[in-house]
Design a protein around this nucleic acid. Structure first.
Length: 259
DNA sequence: CTAGGGTTAGGT
DNA sequence: ACCTAACCCTAG
């Protein structure tokens, strides 16, 4: 009648994020019944929470108009067979491996490079908190890190900032793909997009750091944030490199905590 | 109750 | 005209 479509507000979205952060994805009913989010999500149903979270994750990682995944494609371009849409997923098996001493939390799979133990710690923490059976998506991890580090990245604008760019050469349509690229770069892989998205988020976070939110007025917090941002940038770069080679990213994490 | 799919409405 | 976001229905 008056409101056929009730758009989600920042408060509701924040509550949802925090709910997933605290309880974990899947416990929509618990989050909805939580006295802390009850007043905020009072007009929202558990199904709504799930839907919103789904749309959020999809918009943050898959990028709305990168690949025409909507409806089965009538005919695929001869130049682009696209056999398997590789999605960048971080698997976090709960198997207990003794190959990870508690002292050395840093375990870079690429031996050298040695980025920073900070990002590893954050990702591990995110995986530990989320502990999703199917592994956590990059977007989800980034989301967790954002909240955990009081990051106020792009919210819903993440897609806006990292996707369109209004590039005529790299149009969202498959027209660019069907056309044989004369350059050696070719088309971008979905996994690459994820890495790019991470890099974009980092860059955005850095830009946002200057503005500083009303929450974080402490200089210490900002200084720490800068460090974390740099570490995250390292992660983005590494992801980009590894994804370029077509390697699958798999971070093994030891479950040292039972929720 | 949660997960997935499909449909409708609104915005660009 | 196309895409994005929310809502509804069904299955496990």
């Amino acid at each position: 009648m008056g409101a056929p479509k009730q758009k989600w507000t920042s408060e509701e979205e924040e509550a949802l994020r925090r709910g997933v952060l605290k309880h974990g994805a899947g416990k929509w009913r618990t989050i909805q019944k939580d006295p802390e989010f009850s007043p905020v999500l009072s007009s929202r149903s558990n199904i709504d929470l799930k839907d919103k979270w789904r749309n959020l994750s999809f918009s943050a990682s898959g990028l709305g108009s990168r690949d025409k995944l909507r409806v089965p494609r009538p005919k695929a371009p001869s130049s682009s067979p696209s056999p398997s849409p590789q999605l960048l997923l971080l698997s976090a098996p709960n198997n207990v491996a003794e190959a990870s001493p508690p002292e050395d939390c840093e375990k870079s799979p690429q031996d050298d490079k040695t980025p920073s133990p900070k990002y590893s710690s954050m990702i591990l923490e995110a995986l530990d908190e989320l502990k999703e059976p199917n592994g956590s998506e990059v977007a989800t991890i980034c989301n967790f890190i954002e909240i955990d580090k009081s990051y106020k990245l792009t919210d819903s604008y993440a897609k806006r900032a990292l996707a369109p760019m209004k590039d005529p050469s790299l149009k969202k349509k498959d027209s660019a793909k069907s056309s044989k690229a004369a350059k050696g770069v070719g088309q971008l892989s979905p996994a690459l997009d994820a890495a790019e998205a991470a890099a974009m988020k980092v860059a955005d976070a850095e830009a946002k750091s200057h503005l500083a939110n009303e929450h974080m007025m402490e200089v210490e917090r900002i200084g720490k944030m800068a460090e974390e941002t740099e570490s995250l940038l390292e992660l983005a770069s590494e992801l980009y490199e590894r994804c370029s080679r077509g390697e699958a990213l798999t971070i093994l994490q030891v479950a040292h905590r039972e929720f």
